[in-house]
Design a protein around this nucleic acid. Structure first.
Lengths: 134, 134
DNA sequence: GATAAACCTTGCCACTGTGTCAAGGTCAAG
DNA sequence: CTTGACCTTGACACAGTGGCAAGGTTTATC
């Protein structure tokens, strides 16, 4: 199966398949006589695994970890869970950050006249000089 | 004021100040005879504005917009609010995405035995073949 | 069998935003 | 005047992804 078919079957773009190969996340596949990459169903299965992990926000490095656990028949489920839990912590930190931004902005937007006049608390906040007294 | 002082005074690193200049977010400052960038208090004020906008997650492109509104005495507050509201929508979309990832993962981790055995619903989910019936 | 369309190959550039490092010039304090 | 702290430019890196270009291949159509 050439890269186009593998991309379609796995949901990972051809471009990204080549990228994952370049960063050694997946092994280089065999090549046809004319140099085309040739993927097996097993390869596509792996790509689908990667696609799912990406959609859950795992980084390439985390996927490296997950893939080796996946391929290790003697893994401990606790090890997998540890990777997942760490990622959950990362996600939660990120969510918190974004929510703080959102809340601050929503608060400012709430106090904006929202009309043709130039006075705007949003810009005022951004331009505010940091002063010792506040 | 040279770039180091301006960085310290504004909270934007020297590196990023040069970057913002390179992408035309801020104008190139005057130079001393020896070629050092020379910033005014006004420049630092602008940098502080940028620093605050960045901390609220605005992109460089959005800041370009905000800066020109800020510097336009005849702006309409509604225009500023529109930029902010769009960013809020973007933030909320991102938050939703991350929360979905988090929830999926938390659910999977919850069902993980978390022991030395290899069976793990997290890996099983990632490896699951997509089938018409589910 | 020829030709055209659709695909593959590699390689390079772009983006965001930030860090680091190097080689060389400059300034300030001792 | 020397030393150390700073400035300058330039380059490379990161994560992932998109795009383009020039060239080879395969497939389908005539």
């Amino acid at each position: 199966m050439n890269i186009g078919k593998a991309a379609e079957a796995s949901g990972v773009s051809a471009k990204m398949i080549r990228y994952y190969e370049a960063v050694d996340l997946i092994p280089a596949p065999v090549r046809t006589q004319s140099g085309y990459r040739d993927y097996s169903d097993r390869d596509v299965h792996t790509l689908r695994f990667i696609q799912r992990a990406r959609s859950l926000g795992f980084t390439v490095e985390q996927m490296r970890n997950l893939l080796s656990l996946w391929q290790d028949r003697h893994r401990a489920s606790a090890d997998v869970r540890k990777v997942a839990m760490q990622h959950i912590v990362d996600l939660e930190r990120k969510i918190d950050e974004l929510q703080q931004m959102r809340n601050t902005l929503a608060h400012l937007a709430d106090h904006c006249q929202n009309d043709g006049r130039p006075d705007c608390p949003i810009l005022e906040e951004l331009a505010r000089a940091p002063c010792a007294g506040s």
